[in-house]
Each structure stands twice: as C-alpha cells, then as structure tokens.
Amino acid sequence: MENSKNQAHSCGGQCSCGSKKDGVNQVFEKKSDRRGMLKQLGLGFFTAAAAVNSSCSVTSGEDSKAKADMNWEEYFKGNYKLMSKEERLETIGRLERLYEVNNGTKINVSSKDAHQDVLYGYAFNISKCQGYMDCINACVQENNQDRSSEMQYIRIHEHQNGQMNFENADDNFFHEVPASGHFYMGTQCYHCENPPCVEVCPVEATWKEKDGIVVIDYDWCIGCRYCMAACPYDGRRFNWNEPQVPEQEVNKDQHYLGNRLRKKGVMEKCTFCVQRSRSGKNPACVEACPTGARIFGNLLDPESEIRWVLENKKVFRLKEDLGTEPKFWYFMD
C-alpha cells in the first residue's frame, strides 16, 4: 500500500499530470468517506495500470490518465438516491466530460428534482389507438434505447374484438392498421404507486421519486434482474449486450435517471421521459401519438386533464387485483 502511494505521487510528478485535475491526489485529499477503504484497496492496481498506461502512450498520457481517474471515481460513487446535491453535480460533471473525451461531442445531463405538488399519471384511450406505433419510434429515439437488440419500452397489442386476453393478442403486427375487427392497447411501465420491483431490489437501485416516477440508477444496478421477475406488467428491460446507439442519433438532452446512455448488464425502463416531463413537456410517446390516445398530466391537480379523464370516463387498470396501484389507466370514448 505504502509503495503504491509513493508510486502514485512520483507518477503525478513525472507525467506533469499533477495539475488541478489530478484524480489520484483528489482521492487522497478527499475526506475519507465510507467507501474510502475500498478506494484505497484498489488503488494499488489502479496506479500500476496508470503507470503502464502513461509509459506506453506518451502522446495521450494526460488524457487517458484523466479518463482513468474519472472512470475510477465513477466506479466508486454512491447510490444517486443517497447523494448530496454536490455529489450529484460532481458525477454529472464527470459523465459529461467522459462523454466528451470519448466522443468529442457534448451532452447535457440534468439532475432536476421532482416538482412540488406533482404526481404524474397517464391515461390511454383504447378507442383512439390505431396501432401506428409512432409512439415506439419516438420513445426509442428520445430514450437512447439499444438499437442492436431493438429494445422498446412500449408494446402495442392488437386484440381481437370480443375479448381482452393478452395471450391471444399480437404485439408485433405488420399489416395495414387499424385492422378491421381489432382494437389496440399499449403497455409500458405503469409507475405503480406500490411497485413490486422497488420492493425486491437488493441494493435500492430503483425507487419511486416524489412525483411518482419509478426510476433506476443505472450505475448502481448490479443486474440481478429480480425486479424483472417481480414486475407483473413486463415494464422492465435488461441490457443483455452492450447497448448501441449511433453517435449522431444520440439524444444529448439527458437526465441522470432518464435517458442517459446505459451500459451492458443493467436494467432500464420507461421513466415517463423524466428529462422531458420535469420541464413541463409531455413524454415522447404522448407527443408522437397522432391520434391523441395518450394523455399525461398531474394527478394532484383537480383541474388537470388526467383528473378529468379519471372522474368523467369509465376507466380501468390492468391486474388491479395485485394491489400494485398502477398510475396508468385505460379508457374508451
């Protein structure tokens, strides 16, 4: 341990990376927190790797070292839910810089909190939906979903008139729509008031925000997929491979808990487009729907559209018997 410390310092001197951005020194100067021990434990490996790295590539030495520092800090950061405001800004700064270093373009990651007196709710008009699937395309683009596995949060189920049995429905139809004798129904994460997925997560990597959105800290998720087994609505998706989004298609307006880029081995899902909804905008699916079948708004506002729908239309929710209290209602004209 003592050895590696010395090494770290001497390296810092030789490579002239002892500037203000020296992550190694930052680690040492930082007040030791509860993860301090772990950080120091791994430091030996890290400094060795850094030394090898800087000796091998003289030209990009400083850059790659700064990158390694940031990756290092990122690895040992805490759960977003428990971070202080400063810590949140710190990690966001790192993520933005890392993206810039890696891709040469800038992203903007937000950490905007929930607004006061807002609880989001969603209503889906099954008389209106025609099965065009414009919502899915908008969602995929907005939320930077993996293109290689064609991940999609939303599914549109084509039901035959006379029943609403999902087992007999088709969620991957490709013919002229609306097909006669059929109706359409979209499913996605319902942002349950009583979400079983949150209950089961062993590391509290997923939780319900004050405005009712169920979110995931992608960097805290360990990928056990227990939440996936616990979700009765097929609302969650797993990154089985390294997600791929072409650089020019990346939506650069991001939120830490929303559409920022994910890595392989973590869960993700619909966040009611938290990056949009917290700035007053509608989720991408609502905006993209050409038929107005999707309604989004504040449940706590007695004058909101969503409240009007709940109070004036005949609404229902799926699998209400499970007591999950989805904040996603269906209704008919």
Binding site: K128, R276, S277, K281, F296, W308
Partner: peptide, 27 residues
C-alpha cells in the same frame, strides 16, 4: 365535451400550464 375536459385531442407543448390544446382541424 371530451375535448374540453381533456379526454379527446392533444395538448400543445406539454402537460404543464398554460393549457393550449389543438383545435379539431389541426388533427
């Protein structure tokens, strides 16, 4: 009636105030 209440039609811009709604002929 549905349009007035919010069950028919589409909001412009977003869910937050002010409430601006597409007229019938926009869709």
């Amino acid at each position: 009636k549905d349009w007035k209440g919010g069950a028919h039609g589409k909001r412009k811009a977003g869910w937050a105030p002010p409430r601006v709604v597409n007229t019938c002929v926009e869709c």
